[in-house]
């Protein structure tokens, strides 16, 4: 059994990936707060870990919980309103580069997480399974389903803008 490394080492090694994951998953406006919440939750739980395996996947799992929190809070904010949410209005200035991620953020949570981890961060399927807390075939399915939904969305968008 490997001993737990100093938390700072874990953070230094993976903070870039965790931050990218959150930026893609919740958008740049909420990424910083979400990143801090992730680090604090990880630090709280860290001494209770029984081994030092899959620390990156463990961090992604915590980050995903925090990302879901952000999405739920947004839904609560949007519910009372009759107006349609204004897509693309949340991050002015960065809208151009994040257009595709806005589509990704509309996916069901598990598919969103799977697509970001696999297609954006190149996470191996074995690690993806740990991060999503499911089997490897289930992780592959989530990626596939997410990508299929994104393709359908892109197709719809292209045909509707062509008319």
């Amino acid at each position: 059994m490997t001993a737990l490394p100093p938390f700072q080492t874990v953070l230094d090694e993976h903070r870039g990936d965790v931050y990218r994951y959150l930026t893609a998953s919740v958008g740049p406006a909420d990424a910083d707060d979400c990143f801090q919440e992730t680090c604090l939750a990880a630090l709280r739980a860290y001494p209770r870990l029984r081994h030092a395996d899959h620390l990156r996947a463990w961090l992604f799992r915590i980050a995903e919980h925090k990302a879901v929190d952000v999405h739920r809070a947004r839904m609560r904010r949007e519910l009372p309103s009759d107006e349609l949410p204004e897509r693309g209005a949340e991050d002015p200035g960065r809208a151009g580069q994040s257009g595709l991620f806005e589509e990704v953020r509309l996916l069901p949570h598990k598919q969103r997480a799977a697509v970001v981890l696999r297609c954006v961060l190149d996470t191996p399927y074995s690690e993806l399974a740990h991060a999503l807390d499911c089997s490897e075939p289930a992780a592959r399915r989530s990626v596939h389903e997410g990508l299929t939904k994104l393709r359908e969305g892109a197709h719809r968008w292209m045909t509707s803008s062509a008319t």
């Binding site: 953070l11 903070r15 931050y19 930026t23 604090l40 595709l100 297609c119």
Partner: peptide
């Protein structure tokens, strides 16, 4: 396209200091 999206390489210093 997903791979080509630009994402920050590091969290900002003040975010880390906040942690």
């Amino acid at each position: 396209d997903l791979k080509a999206q630009t994402l920050p390489s590091e969290p900002p210093q003040e975010t880390l200091a906040g942690v």
